[in-house]
Design a protein around this nucleic acid. Sequence first.
RNA 1: GCCCCAGUGGCGAAAUGGUAGACGCGGCAGACUCAAAAUCUGUUGUCCGCAAGGACGUGUUGGUUCGAGUCCGACCUGGGGCACCA
Length: 864
Amino acid sequence: MARYNPKVVEPKWRAAWEAAGVFRTRSPEEACGKPKYYVLEMFPYPSGRIHVGHMRNYAMGDLVARFKRARGYNVLHPMGWDAFGLPAENAARERGVHPADWTYANIDAMREQLQGLGLSIDWSREFATCDPGYYRHQQKWFLDLWRRGLAYRKEGTVNWDPVDETVLANEQVIDGRGWRSGAPVEKRKLTQWFLRITDYADDLLEGLKTLDRWPDKVRLMQENWIGKSRGLKLRWAFAGKAAEGLEEGLEVYTTRPDTLYGASFLAIAPDHPLATQLAAADSKVAAFVDTCRQGGVSEAELEAGEKLGYDTGLKVAHPFDADWTLPVWIANFVLMDYGTGAIFGCPAHDQRDLDFARKYGLPVRPVVLPSGADAETFSVGKEAYAGPGRIFNSQFMDGLEVEPAKAAAIARVEAQGQGEGATVYRLRDWGIARQRYWGAPVPIIHCPKCGPVAVPDDQLPVELPKDVRFDQSGNPLANHPTWKHVNCPGCGGTAERETDTLDTFVDSSWYFARFADPKAAAPIGKAAADYWLPVDQYIGGIEHAVLHLLYSRFVTRALNDDGLLSVDEPFAGLFTQGMVTHETYRRQSGEWVEPGQVEVIADGAARRALMLGSGEPLVIGDIEKMSKSKKNTYSPETIAETYGVDAARLFVMSDSPPERDVQWTNGGIEGAWRFVHRVWNEFDSQPSSEPVVGGAADAKAEELRRATHRLIKSFTEALEGFRFNSGIARLYEFLNILRGLPAEGATPGALAARAEALSALARLIAPVTPHLAEECWARIGGEGLVAQAPWPEYDPTLAAEDVVILPVQVNGKRRAEIRVAPGTLPAEVEKLVLADPEVIRRLEGLEVRKVIVVKDRIVNIVAL
RNA sequence: GCCCCAGUGGCGAAAUGGUAGACGCGGCAGACUCAAAAUCUGUUGUCCGCAAGGACGUGUUGGUUCGAGUCCGACCUGGGGCACCA
C-alpha cells in the first residue's frame, strides 16, 4: 500500500486535464442540447499573490462548476483580472516600476498560483481589464451612453479623497471615509462625469423582486440604498416680496403632508440657490453659509454636528391658510441633493425639526394624536412623536389616520395647483471619472469651438501613454507634455483630450458579458451572450452589495437598451461567501507574530501559545480576517506544500457554512488531511485472501449498499443547496461506515457492495478534492477521467430507510422506542406502542388521554 | 437613531415544529513503538449515582402547541447595513 503523496499526484492530474482539454468551454452546437450553466466568481484584483480567501472563493466556484459539468450541463467557468486601479500607481511611485509592468507581472504570478489550485477554468477566455483590447470596447459603449445622455458632465459637489487624490462615488464612501484609502472624504465642487443610474432607479428596485436566488440581505441593502419614498412636492408662495427667480414660490419635498398644520418654519440648504442669492447680497448670510461649509468638510464630522440656522427674514404663506405666515431659515441639516433642497419643519413629529425649533424658539404644534392620548393634554417634550395616530388640530384632516390624511393633503394641494404627489429616490448618479492614470481613458476630446466631442470609432482605443511620470502631484495623464494635445475630430482645430479615467467599477460592470465571447469584434458578442447570460451562479464577497452588484445591474440594463444585450439582470443566482479568519498572536511587547512561528499547546481545556525556538510566551488575540498587518496569514503555497491542494480545498469547504466566515486552524486542516488519506487507503486496499462466504457479512453488505445510495442522495441535495459543510459531513459519515466493512475478509457480496461504494465515492468527491478523485478513479479502473464522468444516480428504494426507529414520548419526554417498517399506519403504530412492555411500565397509574402518531417520525402519549 | 442578521458542548458546527449536539477539532484512556511522531481502537454536554438509571440542558423571559433550538411577544449580547434622506 503506497502512502498518498499529493506532491506527485496533484500535478500529474492537472497535466492530464490540460492535455485532454476537459475544461474547454463547449459551444452551443458542441453542447448537443445540454443545458448551459455559467458559473463565475468575482474576478480578482492582481495584487501580486493569492491568499487563502481567494482559495475559498475559487474552490467554491470550482465545486459548482465541476458538479454541474458532471450533472450534464454545458459549463462556462472563465477567469480574468480586474486590473486597473490605484495600487499599481502607488507601486510606480514607491518603486519606480511602470503600472503596466507591475500589473502584468502580478497577473503572471497569480495565474500560476490559481492554476496550482486545480481549478476547472477555461483559461483560453482570460483577459485583463487593462488590456487595450478590453477597454476599447468599454470606451465604445461609453460613447453610446454619452450620445444617449446616460453619461454626462456636470459641476457638482463631489466626494474628494485627499490621499488618493481623486473623486469617489457615493457608494465608495464608507462611514465618511474613502473605501480604499480610509482617509476622511472632503466635499469639493468639481466638474465630473456621471452615469445616469438614477434613470433606472425604479427598474433596479423592481428588478430586485425577480432575483429569487439572491440573498435577502443583499436585496434589502440595495433596496435601502435606492431608497424610494413617496410624498409631495409643494410650492410655498412668498408672503410679501418674492425672492428673485422664485416667483412661483419655494418648493419643498415632504413625506408627511399629513402634518402640514404642524408646520412652523421652512428651511433651505446652505447651498440652495436662494441661499446663494441671499449670500451674494448680504455678508452676514455669506458668513453663515461659510460656517456651514466648514462644519461639513467631512461627512464623519457631520455626525456630531449641532443644528445651525439663520433666519433669512423672508416669509411664506401656508398653503391651507393664506393669513398664516412662516419664516424661511437656512439650516445646515438640510441637504441640497435630496428632494428639493428645502423642507418644511414640523417639530412635533420630526426629531431634527424639534431640536432645531427648541434651539431657536420656534413653535411646536402637535397634529398627530397617538391612540389613547388625550387631545387636550397631549404635548411633545424632548422627543418628537413619529408614530401612527389620528390627525387633530388640522381642519379638514381632523380625525383621519395618517395614511388617509396624506392622501387628503396631496389631493388638496394638487387641486390648488401648488404641487403634486412625487416619488423621490435616495440614489444619486454614479460619479465615474477618476483623476488618475491607471484606468481606461474617457474617450472624449474637448474642443473650444465644438465642445466635448467623441473620439471617432476608428481611433479607438484611446490608449494610455506608456511614458508617464509619477514624481509630481496630481493626475499623471494631465501632466503628460503631449498626450492630451490633439486636433478636434469635428473642426480640426486645436483641442484637448479628457484626462480623467474611468472608475474601475466601470471595468467590472460588464466583464461577465465579455467572457461570453472575449474575442468578439463588438463589445459584446451578441449570439454568445444570448446563449450564456445571465450568469447562473455568481459568487463573491458581500462587500460589493451596493457597489459592483448594483453597478453591474445598471450597466446591464443600459446596454440592453443599447441593443448590446438581451437580459435585464446579469446574475440570476448570487452567493456571498464568508471570509477566512485566523487567530492572532502577539508578543508581550505588542508586536504581531506569524502563525508559522507559533506553537499552540493544549493545557487541559486552556490553550497557550509559545514562540517556536525561543519558547517565549505569546498572547493569543482575537480571531480576525487574515491580513498582512496582523500577520495572521498563511500562504496557499505553504499550505499546498504541506498538505496538498485537495486537503486545503476540503477544509475551507467543510468547517463552516459557506456564507459564514471560516476560521483557519491547524487542527482543521489536519482533519481534512486525515480524510484524504483514509479515502485513499480504502481505494488502495486489496484483500490478501480469497473472499469469505458467510451470512452475517452479507447483511452488512446490504447495509453498505443502502448507505451508498443514501449518501448519493443527501450529498447531491447538499451541493444543490450550497450546504457544502453538511454535505462533507455526510462523506465523513459514509467513510466511517465503509471502513467498518473492510475488503480484507469480506464476502463476495460485500466486495460487490464495496466496488459500488468506491465508484460512487470517487465521483462524489471530485468537485471537492478533484486530484484525489482522479487518483481513486484510476485505481478502480474507472473509464476516462473522473472530471468527465457522469454524476452517480441513486436508487430511491435503497436510499430510503428500511426500518424506522420511532421514539415514544410520554407527555413530551422520550421513554421508549419501537421499530417499524417505513410507512406503517398510525393506527397500527398506536396498537404496537400501547402493547410495548416498556411503554406499559411507563404508563402505570396513568390514564391515556390521547396518542399522537406522526408517521415515520414520533409517537407522543398524553396521559394523566 | 432606523433597518437587517445571529446567539446551541472546551472549539468549528448539525438538526422539513418531532430522539438536541450529526460530522470535524480538541481532551481523556488504550493498542502499536526501545521511544516519539504518525496511525488505529474506545470514550467525551452538565449534574446525581458503584451501577441500572435519573434530573437538567440550545442568550434571558413570557406565550402558542400533544411536542419549541426552530413559531409569536418583550428584553440582553454580538455582528452587519444606512445615517441630519425631510
